[in-house]
């Protein structure tokens, strides 16, 4: 048995502990040990974005993060985006725009797009396209995804009292 490290972290706001060998990725631990399989594996080389999560609020590929690096940090996954029964506007708009076909890239898109809108509530089409360039989708040609994210941004701005000030 290879030596393991006891890691204390927060995932989607909840304290979580796990044991991991130093070489295992955060993606592997999320999926294979914590059963958080919403985060998908498409390449394990950081090229497809299906494993997107946030680490201390920053968008990263969990395949390129060692699980032991999560010690003392906050991890956000797709499972933490909806609030109970209520979908995040990005999720809702992806559905309304039919912006998914097979849906396997969708969790990564959801995490990446919500991360974008937290930083930039009013992105241009170009900004959305470049922000999502690390999230490969082979089904949609991106058209409906981009529209959905722009629509979600618009709805979030409309719902925000800051816009009125």
């Amino acid at each position: 048995m290879d030596p393991k490290t006891h890691v204390h972290t927060h995932i989607n706001g909840e304290p979580v502990e796990f044991l991991s060998e130093a070489y295992r990725s955060l993606l592997e631990i999320l999926r294979d040990e914590l059963m958080l399989t919403g985060t998908k594996e498409g390449c394990t080389t950081g090229d497809c974005g299906a494993c997107s999560v946030t680490l201390d609020g920053r968008l990263v590929c969990s395949c390129l993060v060692l699980a032991v690096e999560a010690e003392g940090r906050r991890v956000g996954t797709v499972e933490g985006i909806a609030r109970g029964e209520t979908l995040h506007p990005v999720q809702q708009k992806l559905l309304e725009h039919a912006a998914l076909q097979c849906g396997v890239c969708t969790p990564g898109i959801v995490v990446a797009a919500t991360s974008l809108l937290e930083r930039n509530p009013d992105p241009t089409e170009r900004e959305v396209r470049y922000w999502l360039a690390g999230n490969l989708c082979r089904c949609t040609g991106y058209d409906k995804i981009i529209r959905a994210v722009l629509d979600a941004a618009s709805e979030l701005r409309g719902a925000s009292p800051n816009v009125l000030e």
């Binding site: 974005g49 680490l55 920053r58 968008l59 999230n135």
Partner: peptide, 9 residues
């Protein structure tokens, strides 16, 4: 460099 995700690290 790479994607937003890559730049995050």
């Amino acid at each position: 460099i790479g994607s937003e995700q890559i730049q995050g690290r």
